[in-house]
């Protein structure tokens, strides 16, 4: 099927198989491999992207469902060569270990801060509970999100 959508601000038109997920489309067809696949059933959050501004598991969305939508992936967060404050905070706070969960984690955090610019730690945990990190750098991730929220409010 023909699919047109906006990815990271750019219009994309591609043929895609109806049964391919948005995750497969992004990684295999568009070549945006920053979005990661782990459980492929909505439990780990590694494939999190923003779909029309909302955090979703791209493994649970068919590519064809996104016709006309706007998708933001981890590759779309940098602006003019500048890291997003969340990306910077993840680096600064030591929240990155193996890094495989990080793109999904950052997009989930992006959505969280967009909905709630001053989250409590409990709200941060709730917002990121769908993103597994086996290096379990969770406490540093909380630090990073808290810090990015603070920076954004100033």
């Amino acid at each position: 099927m023909n699919l047109r959508l906006t990815i990271n601000g750019k219009e994309v038109a591609r043929e895609v198989a109806a049964h391919h997920t948005l995750l497969e489309f992004l990684r295999d067809d568009v070549g945006l491999t920053g979005t990661k696949e782990c459980c492929a059933e909505g439990e780990c959050g590694a494939c999190t992207v923003l779909l029309d501004g909302k955090a979703v598991n791209s493994c649970l969305v068919l590519a064809v469902e996104t016709e006309g939508s706007a998708v933001t992936t981890i590759e779309g967060l940098e602006k003019d060569g500048q890291l997003d404050p969340l990306q910077q905070a993840f680096i600064d706070k030591g929240a990155v270990q193996c890094g495989f969960c990080i793109p999904g984690m950052i997009l989930a955090a992006k959505y969280l801060l967009q909905e709630n610019s001053n989250p409590t730690d409990a709200e941060i945990k709730q917002g990121l509970a769908g993103n597994l990190c086996r290096c379990a750098g969770y406490s540093r991730i909380i630090d990073a999100v808290r810090e990015a929220g603070r920076a954004a409010r100033q």
Partner: peptide, 23 residues
Amino acid sequence: QSLGRVGAEDRVTGRQKYAADLR
């Protein structure tokens, strides 16, 4: 010193290539 992680930037931007990312 707690020097920042080498490779962290690639990991927060999605540029880091893991095995499944290689073409």
